[in-house]
């Protein structure tokens, strides 16, 4: 399933809403999750999973082409862990 198919399905189930509004609703949900993580917050959706931010420590890396050492700054990366219910549904 891709984003437009999700919008399409929701629009079919909610004939009283304009497709344009359904698009805005879907965007609002995903944007809110991204904005939360950009602030360092977690988003926990029971049964589905949790989005969180993990810190990667600064390290000394190597340019694989030249073998030269380079320092890599500390950074934060998004992380998702599937919820218990979804994990169980995938395996039943």
């Amino acid at each position: 399933m891709i984003r437009s198919e999700l919008v399409q399905k929701l629009a079919e189930e909610n004939p009283h809403l304009y497709q344009r509004d359904v698009e805005r609703i879907v965007a609002a949900i995903f944007d809110e999750i991204i904005e939360a993580m950009a602030r360092g917050d977690r988003v926990e959706l029971r049964g589905f999973g949790a989005f969180s931010v993990k810190k990667r420590e600064a390290r000394v890396g190597r340019n694989p082409r030249t073998g030269e050492t380079v320092s890599v700054d500390e950074k934060h990366v998004p992380f998702f862990k599937a919820g218990k219910l979804l994990r169980e549904r995938l395996n039943s």
Partner: peptide
Amino acid sequence: MSNKTLTRMDLSEAVFREVGLSRNESS
């Protein structure tokens, strides 16, 4: 970093703010 945990409720609130739907329908 504020380190809060958001839930379905916060996402519903975002939908509620974005489109003029009821809180119930948003959730």
